Amino acid sequence: MYQVLRESTSTFVSLRGCRYHVRHWGNPAGTATPLVLAHGWMDVAASYQFMVDALSEAFVQQRPIIAFDWRGYGLTASPPTDSYWLPDYLGDLDALLDHFYPGQAIDLVGHSMGGNVVMMYTGARPERVRRLVNLEGFGLPVSRPSQAPGRMAQWLDGLKAQSEGKNELKPYTDAAGVAARLMKTNHRLPQNKADWLAQHWASEGSDGQWRILGDSAHKVSNPYIYRVEETLETYKRITPPLLAVEASDDSLSQWWKGTYTLAEYHERLQSVPQVRLEVIQDAGHMMHHDQPEVLARLLEEFLS
């Protein structure tokens, strides 16, 4: 089992009708800017543990560091719902920052879905962020208005499938099965890290089955098409410096098969007034698992 170097402590806070779970590291009395970490789709706050362990002691002792489970993930309890909406994540983040760091600018990191959220949030609330880091939060391919009816129908079908229990996530007989799933998804993930993550990514039910700590309603697609023009206008209002980090594996090519490329993503980033692009070698989408030491050094240099 992976040996944690920096244990986290947990608190629970009520935010917008959700009982949010928040992990804390670092020095709560530190005078440096707080660091806030937002995880991605079907992930949890504990996913950042390896990166936090790789940060230098001097960096950690200077500041509070928190990561939280988004609504419908991990240990965060949210109201019953049959679908999730991107604006709710922004609202939750705004409420969380007001709770922990009212009136204070923070350093904000987001991975994947969390990267998309923090980009949109910073465009709407640039005064709340001192430095911004986006880890492979690429956004989506350009949509056409003609796709709107089909997308709405897809959402309606998703709601029906959810109500009929067809979106249920696969259970596992034990934690070892969860670890095997994690290693199958990420071939770079070693056994000891997979075993540790499995204990936080899933939990054992009363029937002895292990289930992923993610609401199956997250599988229901939103009904509205992605409007890249609105995204670019939001990017233009990101006034803090942005560090955009991507992995050498080129996840976009794997996901979208040429319908959305890294070149298009890089073109979108040009709308951000101050942007620095970095690539982490020998890493896939879960770069904070694959190369936590490299990522930690990048963050320290950028945030310091």
Rank of each mutant, 00 (worst) to 15 (best):
Q154Y: 00
V44H: 05
Q199R: 15
K193A: 15
M113Q: 14
A45S: 14
I280F: 04
R16L: 15
M287A: 11
T9K: 15
G91F: 03
E293R: 08
Y48G: 01
M120L: 15
S146A: 15
M120R: 13
Y121F: 15
V133R: 01
S203H: 08
G177S: 11
P190F: 04
G91C: 05
L277W: 14
P292V: 02
A32D: 13
Y226A: 13
P240G: 10
L262E: 09
I65W: 03
W255N: 12
V4I: 13
D107W: 04
L5Y: 04
L93V: 03
L96F: 10
W196G: 02
P80L: 09
T31V: 13
S253I: 06
V133F: 03
Q270D: 10
P102V: 12
D94M: 06
V245K: 03
T122N: 02
H289C: 03
S304P: 10
N167V: 09
P292D: 01
R144P: 02
D43G: 05
Y89E: 02
P223F: 08
E230A: 13
I280Q: 05
Q291L: 05
R268M: 14
Q291N: 07
Q154S: 15
F100T: 06
T185L: 09
S143F: 12
P292Y: 01
S271N: 11
Q154I: 00
T11R: 15
T33L: 01
E246A: 05
K236T: 09
V13L: 11
S221V: 07
A194K: 08
G17A: 12
A263R: 10
G123M: 08
I212H: 00
Y235G: 01
T239E: 09
H289T: 08
V279D: 02
D69T: 12
Y20R: 08
I212R: 00
A29P: 00
Q61Y: 00
T11M: 14
V117D: 02
K170W: 03
F302S: 06
F50A: 09
T33P: 00
A105S: 12
E301T: 09
A179S: 11
Q154R: 14
